[in-house]
Amino acid sequence: MSATRPPADRAAAYAAVQRSPEFTELRSKLHRFVFPTTAFFLAWYFLYVLLAAFAPGFMSTRVVGNINIGLIFGLLQFVTTFAITIAYIRWADRQFDPRAAEIHTMVEREIGGDY
């Protein structure tokens, strides 16, 4: 690795970027998206698992033909997984990437290009 600056200097520059309001905003934006979303899909998944284990009667309720609530909830797990994927990709492309690119430029200015 050939850094363009001596290590102490680089460390100070990274720390400066980390403290900058732009970086703080980027981090909190990311955390505000991914942490609640993760909490949601894990809660929904374990709700489904717990229902399957402890409420089989409810899950076996027929809705249409042989299609019961258990199957519908199972398929809804697929739907929410796909929906979260789409939502995250859109958010990341539009909200996250432009800001991350700004930080990248800022770091390059402070430290030098990719090494």
């Binding site: 680089r10 460390a11 990274y14 970027v17 980390q18 970086f23 980027l26 981090r27 990311l30 991350a100 690119a101 930080i103 990248h104 800022m106 770091v107 390059e108 430290i111 990719d114």
Partner: peptide
């Protein structure tokens, strides 16, 4: 360094 790199891709 790790946090800045992980988010910015630097």
């Amino acid at each position: 360094e790790m946090e800045v790199r992980s988010l910015s891709g630097h």
